[in-house]
Design a protein around this nucleic acid. Structure first.
Lengths: 119, 119
DNA sequence: AACATTAGTAACCGATAAGTTACCAATCTT
DNA sequence: AAGATTGGTAACTTATCGGTTACTAATGTT
């Protein structure tokens, strides 16, 4: 994903404040200009930015539409209206939990990763 | 970023429909179960999911709050109300463009990446 | 008690990604 | 026209990532 890289996110934030030349975009970053160039290419390829040449400089700007796919994903992952099924699953879990509770047990296993709750 | 991987996005979509066991989460994917385990660890580390043990099975569920950071980013990148500065930059670009227009020029350079507009 | 099932860890491998330096092209400046 | 500025490409290096197989632990089943 294009948003995966912190440098790229930074570039986008900068561009959210308006178009900018490559040199200006690169300035705040400790990495080489070719590296910035690559990031800009990636952002452009996925439709998040676009460029316009003005003589020897190139102005990049944000294409807000490019965010749509991610926006879609996040609300696809927000079980807002129809959390009916979800609620049922939760009920199911609750039932099983309650049942096991009455037999008495602990759950160690091989130090599982961040199991937080061991209901 | 955790959302960078398609498998992970799939797991999240599945979990959006309610909690699930690891085996069920792994089933639709052609990759090995340890690979799924890794993905689940990553998702859990960034706070997108959580797990509960039920005997020998482990139920993962979505933690909707985990999406906040990305949600924040996307609307941070949406120059909605204060696009005043942006508008000014655009104007500036337009001015320079217009000026150059009257001198006559083409812009080839070394086959730049997806320059689209060469105003 | 023996076996099957569920799931995590360890160690390793190949591909990808992000960075570097060196170089070139085009445009502006003087 | 010479030199400086701007920005992209090429080739390479290294670190990270996603995957694999082999193994182990714990729980459930018969």
């Amino acid at each position: 994903m294009a948003l995966a890289d912190p440098v790229r996110r930074d570039l986008l934030r900068r561009l959210a404040a308006g178009p900018a030349r490559v040199a200006d975009l690169a300035a705040p970053h400790p990495i080489s200009r070719p590296a910035i160039s690559k990031h800009l290419r990636i952002l452009t390829e996925v439709g998040l930015t676009a460029a316009q040449d003005h003589g020897r400089e190139r102005h990049y700007r944000l294409l807000p539409g490019g965010l749509a796919p991610i926006a879609d994903l996040i609300d696809e992952l927000s079980p807002r209206p129809p959390f009916a099924e979800s609620a049922l699953d939760g009920l199911d879990l609750e039932v099983r939990r309650t049942v096991r509770e009455h037999v008495g047990e602990q759950t160690p296993r091989t130090s599982p990763h961040a199991t937080e709750e061991t209901a």
